[in-house]
């Protein structure tokens, strides 16, 4: 790792001030991605601002229609929450399949969403469930949040405070995990919501994206057969040693059908 300065604020305001004082400061939440990236010298922040001591950023609140999860809430806290499991089982399932047990004890929802790794699981939940990202400055709809590879709508000095998930009528997340990393080679969140059907894909493109053609087909007939012939365009998909774009396009359709069948 390159050398860096370290700060451990206890309030959001203090963290924002610290991040604003340096050109190359970086926030660290759980750090399960960031620290390994620093070891590989893929990033060189001059200052690390650790959000881990900001108590108000952690916690889960369920009010019947919305599940609100604080940005610093760990994956296992979501996965093991009986309240989340009752309200949105698909969200608890998704959190419980991220990385491994130890990573789930440290990694956070805010860190995952802010990083927008193309293969991360949480972006599929945020987009697929039509969540709202609450920051220290504003509320951002999921549809406006994920911009590109590791790029979100967050501005410099803007921190995620919480994610608001509307409770769907039914939903499911199914992923095909890369066997070594457990990242999604492709993953699909499908949800029947008060505003119609949403279907979001992670792992396959530069960032999480919706598939309107599948959503329209499912709106008329929420069944696996309804989307059997609906393919995503392989030209837009990722190509790496783990899978070709054509393979990922095929996976998306298979996983979407499985998700529809699993929705509850």
């Amino acid at each position: 790792m390159y050398a860096f300065g370290y700060h451990r604020p206890t309030t959001i305001d203090e963290a924002v001030t610290l991040l604003g004082q340096s050109e190359d400061a970086s926030a660290i939440a759980g750090g399960q991605t960031l620290l390994q990236s620093l070891k590989q010298r893929l990033a060189q922040p001059g200052e690390l601002v650790d959000l881990g001591a900001i108590k108000e950023l952690s916690g889960i609140a369920v009010d019947g229609r919305t599940v609100v999860i604080g940005a610093l809430t760990k994956h296992n806290e979501v996965a093991l929450s009986s309240e989340v499991r009752k309200a949105v089982p698909a969200l608890a399932d998704l959190a419980g399949a991220i990385g491994d047990h130890q990573v789930r004890n440290v990694g956070t929802i805010g860190g995952s969403v802010a990083n927008s790794d193309p293969a991360a699981d949480y972006p599929a939940a945020v987009l697929g469930l039509g969540a709202t990202v609450e920051t220290n400055q504003r509320r951002i709809a999921a549809d406006d949040f994920f911009i590109d590879l590791f790029e979100t709508a967050l501005e410099p000095g803007e921190l995620i405070k919480a994610i608001h998930f509307p409770v769907p009528k039914r939903a499911a997340y199914v992923k095909f995990a890369q066997p070594a990393s457990r990242y999604a080679l492709a993953g699909v969140m499908v949800a029947e919501t008060g505003d119609g059907v949403r279907l979001a894909v992670t792992g396959a493109g530069a960032c999480a994206f919706r598939v309107p053609a599948m959503e329209q087909a499912l709106a008329g007939d929420f069944s696996a057969d309804a989307i059997k012939g609906v393919q995503v365009d392989a030209d837009e998909l990722n190509d790496d040693i783990h899978g070709t774009p054509a393979y990922r396009a095929h996976l998306v359709n298979v996983l979407a059908r499985r998700a529809v069948e699993a929705a509850r």
Partner: peptide
Amino acid sequence: GSCTIHLDGRAVKACSVLAAQAE
């Protein structure tokens, strides 16, 4: 996972945590 320890009662990988984060 060889470096797994308990941090506030939970298993974590000590190679993926800064000492400073365990303050």
